[in-house]
Each structure stands twice: as structure tokens, then as C-alpha cells.
Amino acid sequence: MTDPAPPLSDGLFRAGPGAADDGTITLVGGRSASGGRLHFPRSPVCPWTGADDVEDADLPRTGRLWAWTTVTAAPPGYSGPVPYGFGVVEFDDADGVLRVVGRLTVADAAALRFGEPMVVVAVELPTERGPVTTWAFAPDGTDRP
């Protein structure tokens, strides 16, 4: 068994060894005790209120697809597969909706639907410094025939 790829960046998510194989990943955002509203990625100050009493807060695993694109002209510095999906997923939170951007496992814009349930999964992505583990959104299929 090969060593698991290191995370894209520290502090964004928790993913165990071999996460890309079993897909288990938890996005870690922040919540300001005074402001109350969830944000991601975790910031030293709450982006909604500017308060600095931010603590770690796990994001839900399932959200809804809000907007997306299929990228056919990859930007420089990107060494993953092309085309690739990129989109925005909404997560329900007690204090409103949180949107998170990320890769989509589906690289065909026509195959996705507004409001489709999406689950956070771990994926391995090639980069110039070797493969890394990061998150992506996949249709969870629960609303599909």
C-alpha cells in the first residue's frame, strides 16, 4: 500500500489515511461564538462580522448544488485532468446557508441539476509537488431514479 497523499493545505479538513479510497473527509470551517454564523475555510476573523472569537466547526457532509461550470481550458499551474467540474454547493446551517466552492466529480455540465444533493468526498489530485488529497463534491444519487 502506498502512503496516502498529503492534504492540499493544513487546516481545511480532516481525512484519515487512504481517504481518497474510502472517500471519508470532513470539511472544517469556523464559527464565531458572538456572530454565530458558520464560515469556510476557517478564518482568524469572522468574515460576516469581523469578530475574532472563531472556533473550529465541522461542516455537514451533504449539501445542494447551487451553481457550476465545466472547465475545458485549464489555468496554468493546474496539472489535473481536463475537463473538470467546478461548482458551488450550499449547506444548511442554523444561522443561514453556507456556500462552499470546490471541484465536482462530474465534468459534464449537462449532467448536473440545480438543487441536486451533493456529498463531500476525498479525491487525489496531481500537482507540481506530487499528488495531494483534497475535497470534491459528488452527486449523492439519493434523488436519482
Binding site: 492540499l8 447551487w66 451553481a67 489555468p75 499551474g77 466552492v101
Partner: peptide
């Protein structure tokens, strides 16, 4: 930004606006 500007290009930022406006 360590995440959001990695592999970002300006069209990728505006494409979701077009997707939503069309929808």
C-alpha cells in the same frame, strides 16, 4: 488566498453567475 486562488482564473469566477442567471 491559499485555496481559492489556486488554479483560479477570472472566467471560472464569472461562469457560475452565468449559470445561475440562465437558470
Amino acid at each position: 488566498h491559499p485555496v481559492y486562488t489556486r488554479g483560479e482564473s477570472a472566467p471560472v469566477l464569472f461562469a457560475p453567475f452565468a449559470t445561475r442567471h440562465m437558470h
